[in-house]
């Protein structure tokens, strides 16, 4: 059986809100080490990979590996019933046909209990190679989100080019063109600083609709990490306490 408690429901609420526009059905793979999710969007262009290590929970117990097949829209409805500061407990039996969620306020004066019906999801599990990216960028989530939002008003796709000078986001649209150059911060200690590690300069073109969906994870972390190599999917990563939420997006490439 699974029993996993988070001190604050806000974490799971934010995670599920962040992925709900990217994927519809997900398997929560629960094991001794924590909860893992991998799901591909229906067009096979974007992939969500979530890791919640057992240490990130205030209580965690999982005797046997269980797969919980979850319809994301249904989980969103139930999580709306939790207050951000409530303690949240996930409970499931080994047969994995339902997930029980309890929400408890800090004074333990209110205990809410909801049951989510689970389903069998036939998801192909993809092998993501452990890649050393040619360029690694870490930048504040707000800055990344604003650029993605602004560029999406002009164009369907963005070109991200990275070299030692900085990272340049550019787009071409019917009304005109635009670009934003972000240079690496001189002081690393600054909050809101950008760091750029370039082994090989990289340039790739990506669909802005998906990137804007990924930006819904901006409430989960201060910074976003972009892992880029030529002509392979970009990794957009938000670090969590004891885990991560990663999105992968296949690039647009020449014939």
């Amino acid at each position: 059986m699974l029993e996993a408690k988070l001190n604050e429901a806000a974490l799971l609420k934010k995670i599920i809100d962040a992925i709900k526009d990217s994927v519809t059905d997900v398997n929560f793979e629960c094991s001794e080490t924590g909860i893992d999710v991998q799901a591909v969007d229906s067009s096979h262009i974007a992939l969500v990979s979530l890791k919640l290590g057992s240490d990130g929970f205030s209580d965690y117990r999982c005797d046997r590996n269980i797969t919980l097949g979850i319809k994301v829209a249904s989980l969103v409805k139930i999580l709306r019933c939790a207050n951000d500061r409530d303690a949240l407990t996930l409970m499931a039996d080994d047969n994995g046909d339902q997930l029980r969620l309890t929400f408890e306020d800090s004074k333990s004066e209110r205990v809410s209990e909801f049951v989510l019906k689970l389903m069998t999801i036939d998801q192909e599990h993809l092998g993501i190679p452990d890649t050393k990216y040619e360029s690694d960028i870490t930048m504040p989530v707000d800055a990344f989100q604003k650029i993605m939002r602004d560029m999406f008003m002009l164009s369907e796709s963005v070109k991200i080019s990275c070299d030692k000078e900085g990272v340049k986001f550019s787009c071409k649209g019917d009304v005109g063109d635009g670009s934003v150059l972000i240079k690496p911060s001189s002081s690393v200690d600054d909050e809101g600083s950008t760091t750029i590690a370039v082994e090989t300069p990289v340039s790739m073109e990506l669909n802005l609709k998906y990137l804007n969906n990924f930006c819904k994870a901006s409430g989960l972390a201060q910074n976003v990490h972009l892992g880029m190599s030529s002509e392979v999917p970009i990794m957009v990563e938000y670090l969590l306490p004891n885990g991560y939420l990663r999105f992968y997006l296949a690039p647009k490439i020449g014939d």
Binding site: V40, H44, E124, L126, G127, P233, Y248, P251
Partner: peptide
């Protein structure tokens, strides 16, 4: 114009 690629051509099953 560049074409949208699929994840399936990068990540093995």
């Amino acid at each position: 114009a560049n074409k949208q690629s699929s994840l399936m051509s990068f990540f093995k099953k």
